[in-house]
Design a binder for these strands. Structure first.
Lengths: 181, 181
DNA sequence: CAGGTCATGTAAAGCGTTACATGATTTT
DNA sequence: AAAATCATGTAACGCTTTACATGACCTG
């Protein structure tokens, strides 16, 4: 596999995490769950096979570093890995997030269910957003210890979520008014 | 397959679209591409097999209705289909959008690439968002002809995108300032 | 009559989650 | 001694995209 090979989706997050100093599959998963999860998740079922694929492709180098009798494989970027990471970070992005939001889909079809249901859907969207906002807020308490990139993504997520909660609130108000009228 | 069976992801959008009066696979795909695509896409490779699965499950009924010599299978909701659709629309939503945003992922790792790259990434995010905003705006010109659900999702998408563009703009300003300083 | 739209489909490949399985070390 | 954490992995299943393939009808 040559250097020009495009990274797979999960390959991107793994390469980045190893670049940030995360060394084991477990360690990567931990940080993903505490940070990128909100816009880019990854599961063990993807991480471990992908680590080996990236090693085979020459972008990572792994060596055994057991802690006592506990197995442990530590990965680091090779020169080719560094280059691939910089190439990816410098490349254009054409795809904007293909996202899936079930609340939005329900809202789209909500005319089929009647006005009370429509209001209920917006309320549920808001509640889900509020849960998300709470999780992001919890992370934000460590913001001072974050470097620029992670802090920016967190503030973006927090701000966007806040806007969306506000939209839901105002829409709930408008829809309730319509019912009362 | 009983009524209590959970709908597959694509099953949901198809059932909804048939509920809205879309009758053929082609027709469904057209509307998806002009509307829900921004938060819920679907491809022919999913639509046609899923239509048959939903028919087998008793939620849809399909019959041949050729236009001249041109094959055409028209679907409609069965009673069970109506019930399944209402059940889904009335159910709680626990999952908030699992989304994937490559711009955010790049921004997260942007410290590895230097300050100019970081600025470049935010600029690219804004440009992608502006393209999306333009597409949504084009749809919005027909807003008066839309029913409540579709109009709400469109306005939500437009508003959220506008907020995000503003965030990018302000962040670009802040990051440029930092460079100049 | 050429190009666009209507209309349907399949096969292969890739992506991803979930559930399962194992075992050592550390903390309470 | 139990519970939590560290650590790695696989198998099955399901979802989705992409590329390919076909052909009729309509418009200029």
């Amino acid at each position: 596999m040559g250097v020009g090979d495009p990274l797979t989706p999960t390959g991107r997050v793994i390469l980045g995490m190893v670049g940030l100093g995360k060394t084991t599959g477990y360690d990567i998963k931990q940080l993903v769950d505490r940070s990128t999860r909100f816009f880019w998740a990854a599961s063990y079922g993807q991480i471990y096979p992908e680590l080996r694929r990236l090693e085979q492709a020459g972008l990572l180098r792994g060596h055994e570093e057991p802690t006592g009798g506990r197995l442990r494989t530590v990965y680091e970027l090779t020169d080719a890995g560094h280059r691939a990471l910089e190439e990816w970070l410098g490349s254009d992005l054409d795809l904007v997030g293909e996202m899936r939001d079930e609340g939005m889909l329900k809202l789209f079809f909500s005319d089929l269910a009647g006005p009370e249901r429509q209001l209920q859907i917006v309320r549920q969207m808001r509640e889900a957003l509020e849960r998300k906002h709470a999780q992001l807020s919890a992370l934000h308490s460590h913001a001072s210890a974050m470097s620029s990139g992670p802090r920016l993504t967190l503030e973006y997520g927090l701000g966007a979520t806040t806007w969306m909660i506000g939209w839901c609130r105002e829409t709930e108000r408008r829809l309730s008014g319509r019912e009362a009228a």
